[in-house]
Amino acid sequence: MTTQAAQTATTTATARRAVPPIPTSRIVGVELRKMFDTRSGFWLLLSIGVLSVVATAAAIVFAPERSLSYETLTTALGFPMTLLLPMIAILAVTSEWSQRSGLTTFTLVPSRGRVIGAKAIATIVVGIVSMLVAFTIGAVGNVVGSALAGDDAVWNIGPAHAAQIVLGDLVGMAIGFTLGVVLRSSAAAIVGYFVLSFVLSGILLLLAQVREGFTDLQPWLDWNHTQVVLFEGETSSVQEWVQLAATTMLWIVVPLVVGLVLLRRSEVK
């Protein structure tokens, strides 16, 4: 028995050395695939494309005469994006718990931090690609729409503004991702996102109206506020960037770190 055990130990040690660890790129690839290989994931992705086209068409049809511009279109495109992208971010995390597939995921990759990190990268990739698609659809819409109206297309969104819009949507996704990590339940995280993005901003706005001192404080606390400034492409001064950093720290970084610590210690059932 002892020799047998010793033998097993040696062969095992060899096996352990011989097998290379799972590269992060592979985990990212798998996580990216998992975001869209279910029916719900597929429709969520498809609806981004479909709703972008619908929003663009609606903007062309309903825009008052001579007011169609690239900005009008990107604003119209912004609605489906700010709604759908955070949902994709939430489900990327929570489905492991709500659908219990985490049992397999975390058995195949025991480092939960790596899995969540891979999910974060995959989420950012999806966000950026979706935004590029939306900008492209908007650009086509702008060309077609102005041709229909017989005007020259108005290109009034510069690269800097476009980058801020992308950043704004990534902020929304990060909020969703954070909620997913903290709550680890699809339903709770989705409700949580609507509370944070609609109810909370309303409360903070109300507070700002009632308490005068709060008006100055609001941009430092309200992530919705800093996100809207990004969408408008008006985050320019140092103070505005610091405010963005402050709301990001408060609503994303701190809860994400706490959530990650809890997630790594939690039971996967």
Binding site: A9, R16, V19, T107
Partner: peptide
């Protein structure tokens, strides 16, 4: 296999 499960490079 002689070690912690979590330390396996590719479990």
């Amino acid at each position: 296999l002689g070690g912690r499960y979590a330390d396996l490079p590719n479990p």
